[in-house]
Design a protein around this nucleic acid. Structure first.
Lengths: 148, 148
DNA sequence: TATGGGCCTTGACATCATGTCAAGGTCAAG
DNA sequence: CTTGACCTTGACATGATGTCAAGGCCCATA
């Protein structure tokens, strides 16, 4: 199977398959004489595993461990569970941050009449405060901020 | 005021101040003969505004608009409110995605005994399913996934 | 057999906001 | 004048992914 078919079968883009190979998350596959990558259905299975783990928000770094444990038939399920629960904790932190932002913004917006008048509590809020402990401040703004 | 003091006063890193200047979010400040950037307290005020907007998760692209509206004393508050509410919608979407991940992961983890035995429903879940509509699939995995 | 379209290859650049490091210039206090 | 704290620019890294470009390969059809 060529990369295009493998990608379709696994629900992972060709770009990502090559990337996973590049970072050593999956082994380099056999090549045809012309240099085409050739995948087995076992490879596709692995790729699907990776895709699902991504859908649950695991970073590739964790996925490397998960794949290793998955292959290791003598693993302790405790290790997997710990990884999963740590990730849940991370998700909870992000959710809390986003909810704090949402709450603050809703409060500001609630008192903004939102018409033709220039009067705007939202801008005032951004301009004036909060300087005190208003929201859960991410250590690093980028951890959660931005995007739409 | 030099950049270091401005950064401290505004709660924004020097790196980011230079970046905001680079992308045109703030105007290039006056320089000393030696080329040092010189900031006024009004500049600091703007930077603090930007920092707070970032803390609420606005992307810089939106912040550019917000700053413009902030300066424009004849703005319509409706425009600000619309921007804020659109951002709230975005936050809600992300929160929902993260919660879906969390829920799925908790379900998987709940049935995993997490001891020395290799038996692991979490890995089985990743390996076997879900192929059906299990979670809110982000159009683009990167929109929300990963990270800790 | 020649040609075209669809597949593959690698490499590079973009995203988004931020950190960090390096090499070098400046300023102020001792 | 030296030292240390500050400033400058530029480059590279993060994480996962998209996209584009230039070029090679394969197969089917005219």
């Amino acid at each position: 199977m060529n990369i295009g078919q493998a990608a379709k079968a696994a629900g992972v883009s060709q770009r990502m398959i090559r990337h996973y190979e590049g970072i050593g998350l999956i082994p380099a596959p056999v090549r045809t004489e012309a240099g085409y990558r050739v995948y087995s259905s076992a490879d596709v299975h692995t790729l699907r595993f990776i895709g699902r783990a991504r859908d649950l928000g695991f970073p590739l770094e964790d996925i490397e461990v998960l794949v290793r444990l998955w292959r290791d038939r003598s693993r302790a399920s405790a290790e997997v569970k710990a990884l999963a629960l740590a990730h849940v904790k991370g998700l909870e932190r992000k959710i809390a941050e986003l909810q704090a932002m949402k709450r603050t913004l809703e409060h500001l917006a609630a008192t903004c009449h939102g018409d033709d008048r220039p009067d705007c509590p939202i801008l005032e809020g951004l301009s004036t405060g909060p300087d005190g402990p208003a929201a859960i401040k991410p250590a690093n703004r980028r951890t959660v901020g931005g995007g739409r």
